[in-house]
Nucleic acid binder design. Sequence first.
DNA 1: CTGGTCTCCTGATCGC
DNA 2: TGCGATCAGGAGACCA
Length: 291
Amino acid sequence: MPELPEVEHLRRSLEPWIVGAQLIDVRVLRKSVVTLASETGRSNAVLRAALGVGETIVGTDRRGKQMAIAFANGRFLVIQLGMTGSVTIERGAPPRGVEARHRHVIWNSYSPALPSEPEPWRLVFRDPRRFGGLTAYHSREVLDRVWNTLGPDALNIAGDELLDALARTRRPIKSALLDQSVLAGVGNIYADESLHAAGIHPLQTASAVPTAQVHRLASEIRRILGRATAEGGSTLRDYRDAFGKPGNAVQVHAAYGREGQPCLRCGTNLLGLRLQGRATVFCPRCQDLST
DNA sequence: CTGGTCTCCTGATCGC
DNA sequence: TGCGATCAGGAGACCA
């Protein structure tokens, strides 16, 4: 479920805590969630080094739905939340019951720069469905090689950039928006939301959308993602920030999940279809195929 | 190049 | 109360 807003909100909530922190140790409860992009072996020593044991965290970054942690030795760890992933900071006793399940990687850490936190704490990667994972990179250069295969970041997408990206493909525009190599960060929810807000039919050929509407779409994507980020993600069910706090439930979706309900703009009942296996909701009146 | 389908995986929900 | 079917969808593999 996490799309760009959830990932960016997570990054912002983690950053003040983890930058400057030292990773003392790591427990890998499920090795398969860790991918080593630059290494040859998978010994415990290699794994621990890739996960930053002994290192200080010096920064965070994000491209689309991928978040990166930068280590002092120049290595990077990319976190992908997939559908159900979370990264939380834990202090005190570990959780019991269902919350204790699906915890795949747990770092022990402490913050020499935070005098208010003299005790070690834990950084926990949890992901019940395991569509997410961690990928370790040896250098910024290797990370950039991968990130450069992604399209421009959706949070600040410029109208001209979007126009460029969409002009290259004749797929339905929603398919193009979901393709991370075209535009990085938009998933199923915000694809429907931004197309509805911009009045574009999801099946409209990407390259055939008029210039003015592409600019409108870019502006709606920025507005909707920006607002959702500030509100802490849309929070359908699984998203939690660094402290286990759900996003504000105030976010109202105008299209997503509202098939059969009246369009908030014109009152026409919203229609549903499946595109690439994804539930798609749109207003047959506001989102006209012919425009 | 393109869409369609399948796969990975668990948990929530629904009908019976 | 239980149980099986269905759905949720990010991302990549594979096929037509």
